[in-house]
Simulated assay, not measured.
Amino acid sequence: MPAEARRARGERAGLTRERILDAAVDLVDREGLKALTMRRLGAALGVEAMTLYHHVPNKDALLDGLVERVFAGAAPVEDATAGWRPWLRAYAGALRTTLLGHPGVLPLAAARPAVTPAALDAVERGLRVLTAAGFPLGRALHALNSLTLLVVSHATAECALATPDTPGSAGELAALDPDRYPLTAEAARTGAGTDDAERFAFAVEALITGFGAEAGV
């Protein structure tokens, strides 16, 4: 009997949910989210698609698992001595790094809520940090969600601007009429305000400062 048939009949080829999610991330990184099907994923793992259902019950569960991989890996372990501000900075930085490393997952991060236990564990860690610092629960959730949306949106914009044929390139901006757009032209010429990492850190710090002022902590 061929090896593929034996696997399809229950050997599962040493599969685990973690291995399946790793392969799914690799496939999305290489070929994009539209390429992710159970059949394609099974082929990448050397098994029949039906074998995957022992570990992920359906396509939605697979997509939820990809969201989990993004957010669970970005949430630091709580450190009561470090404070909520460093925790949020570390979370934002780790999430941006993860998303930029896996741009194919960005549409999922923007559209799908955290629903798996591991993803919800990450949310719970953030809420514990913020409520322990004095945030009311509702404000804590607003802060965590707002920061997450900033990171996802910023990473999405960074990936889009990295595409060679993206309109509005630095060269086009540098060619602006300096009499009509003196400040914009100067920024394009000197690079002021164009560094992605600098802009990201500025935005994160502004949000964190506002969170503290609004919550009185």
Rank of each mutant, 00 (worst) to 15 (best):
P2R: 12
R6A: 13
R9D: 09
G10P: 06
A13E: 06
L15F: 00
E18F: 00
R19K: 12
L21C: 03
V25E: 15
L27F: 03
L27D: 04
V28K: 10
V28G: 05
R30K: 11
E31Q: 14
T37V: 02
M38F: 13
R40L: 07
L45R: 04
G46F: 02
E48K: 11
L52I: 01
L52E: 00
Y53L: 12
H54L: 07
H54F: 12
V56Q: 12
V56S: 01
P57Y: 01
L63D: 10
G65I: 00
V67E: 08
E68Q: 11
E68N: 00
E68V: 00
E68I: 02
V70I: 15
F71V: 14
A75V: 00
P76S: 06
V77F: 05
D79T: 04
G83D: 04
G83S: 01
G83E: 06
R85S: 04
P86R: 03
L88P: 02
R89S: 11
R89M: 09
Y91C: 02
Y91W: 13
A92I: 03
G93N: 14
A94M: 03
R96F: 03
L99F: 10
L99Q: 08
L100G: 07
L100M: 10
G101N: 06
L106R: 07
L108E: 05
L108N: 07
L108Q: 08
A111P: 00
P113K: 05
P113N: 08
P113M: 02
A119G: 07
L120Y: 07
A122Y: 02
A122F: 07
V123T: 13
E124F: 14
E124H: 15
R125G: 05
R125L: 08
T131W: 10
A132W: 03
A133T: 05
F135N: 08
R139A: 15
R139F: 12
R139K: 14
H142G: 08
H142Y: 13
A143M: 10
L144T: 05
N145I: 12
T148H: 12
L149E: 14
V152E: 08
V152D: 09
S153G: 14
S153L: 06
T156W: 05
A157R: 14
A157L: 15
E158H: 07
C159T: 15
T163R: 14
P167T: 06
S169W: 06
A170C: 07
P178L: 09
D179N: 14
D179C: 10
R180C: 04
P182L: 02
T184C: 04
T184I: 13
E186W: 14
R189L: 11
G193E: 04
G193M: 02
D195L: 01
D196Y: 11
E198S: 12
F200V: 05
A203K: 12
E205M: 03
A206W: 03
L207K: 06
I208E: 03
I208Y: 00
T209Q: 10
T209N: 06
E214G: 10
G216L: 09
G216T: 11
G216C: 09
V217C: 05
V217E: 04
V217S: 01
